[in-house]
Amino acid sequence: MSSVRGYLSGFLISGLLMLAATYMAATHAFPPFGLLMVITVCAAIATIAQTYFLLHIDTAEHNIWNTVSLVLFIPLFVLTIGLTWWMFSQLYLHTMPAMAGMH
């Protein structure tokens, strides 16, 4: 895994995805929401590739606890960001009616 080929694949996949995302963003290739979706997908794939090829997160025995802890952390990241965003979008909606929805 920690071979030259692994590192090169990680670099190429994430680099090309970022190139594509940058190109689409710089040229405004899609309407904003569609663009957001596309670059989110790019980011997700790049992250997964890097996690696999660079951080060596897999189910091999010497790595298992790293993998377990990562898997346990991810929901917390999602909760932290997701609930906060939701809570404040609601707060803006209620307390700043003139401002909300202008994201």
Binding site: P75, L79, L83, W86, M87, F88, Q90, L91
Partner: peptide, 18 residues
């Protein structure tokens, strides 16, 4: 414990859904 913290500021006024 990761899904409850807003109960410290229910009176903030984030709306009934939240």
């Amino acid at each position: 414990s990761w899904m409850v913290w807003l109960h410290h500021f229910f009176t903030m006024g984030a709306g009934p859904q939240v």
